[in-house]
């Protein structure tokens, strides 16, 4: 496929909590501009994996290679500084201030008068308007408080903010759980557009149709292991369901396992 090094490569990642082994020998890659759907039943280990990628948890063993170098993130702040972030629907916005303020949270444009930093609202508004227009996101007024916006619009603000500030890999944990049909469709469009800007997207979902609409690849986790790593055009919903539940394990899954093994000669 691509000749350049992947954006993120997980090599034999394992993680245990006491006697419980949550993840075993997880290996997969994600390229720039690639959308990977992470699928799996409840308790399969998806959330643990996402936490590890974003820096919230350290693996017990295995290597994380990101942007060409091995990384040891010890906190989400480390991950964030490197351009990896988990985008939640609400947690990272201040709903009591407007869209512009949220976009620039902690990075406001200021001009100093007599040493006093003064917010440059017009300049900031122009930047936000451009960033949202480039991403094809429509928000009625950038000066409305975020509390008046819909869940989908909030998500769009978060994602666009992430892209604007140099994000490279975004993790979305059940991004559309609380959204309606139309909002979900727009959200999926947005994911596609973000990936088209060269950003890697990993999104966790339960909903097969969403994965098939937007993902380039699907990685299925079952009982802490990669049960399948398949390209969208090479698979079917039935096969993915089988991979998730582990019933009637098909030949494709075994192939995927083997390919994974070949990907890391060190293993």
């Amino acid at each position: 496929m691509t000749t350049e090094a992947p954006l993120l490569r997980l090599e034999n990642i394992s993680r245990s909590f006491g006697a419980i082994q949550a993840l075993r020998d997880i290996s997969f890659d994600i390229g720039r501009g690639e959308v990977v759907a992470l699928l799996g039943d409840n308790g399969a280990g998806k959330s643990t994996l996402v936490k590890m990628i974003s820096g919230g948890l350290e693996p017990s063993s295995g290597r994380i290679i990101y942007d060409g170098a091995e990384r040891h993130f010890t906190s989400p702040a480390d991950g964030k500084a490197a351009g990896i972030e988990t985008v939640y629907q609400d947690l990272s916005l201040c709903t009591n201030v407007d869209v512009v303020a949220n976009f620039f949270m902690g990075r406001e444009i200021v001009k100093k008068y007599l040493g006093i930093p003064v917010l440059q609202e017009k300049a900031m508004e122009a930047v936000v308007a451009k960033a949202l227009a480039d991403a094809g996101t429509k928000i009625p007024s950038l000066r409305t408080n975020v509390e008046h916006l819909s869940g989908g619009q909030r998500q769009a603000i978060e994602l666009n903010r992430f892209v604007h500030w140099g994000g490279k890999l975004v993790l979305l944990d059940e991004p559309f759980a609380a959204l309606g049909v139309e909002q979900t469709r727009r959200g999926l469009d947005l994911i596609r557009r973000i990936a088209d800007q060269g950003i890697g997207v990993i999104f966790i979902t339960h909903i097969m149709s969403q994965a098939f609409q937007v993902a380039d690849r699907m990685v299925v986790i079952r009982q802490g292991k990669v049960a399948g790593d398949v390209r969208r055009e090479d698979t079917t919903a039935d096969e993915i369901v089988q991979l998730i539940t582990g019933e009637a394990l098909g030949g494709r899954a075994r192939n995927a396992d083997r390919e994974n093994g070949q990907a890391q000669p060190a293993a």
Partner: peptide, 11 residues
């Protein structure tokens, strides 16, 4: 409004 968000944004 949201101390967690502010903290996450590096404030």
């Amino acid at each position: 409004g949201n101390p967690t968000a502010a903290y996450r944004a590096g404030i």
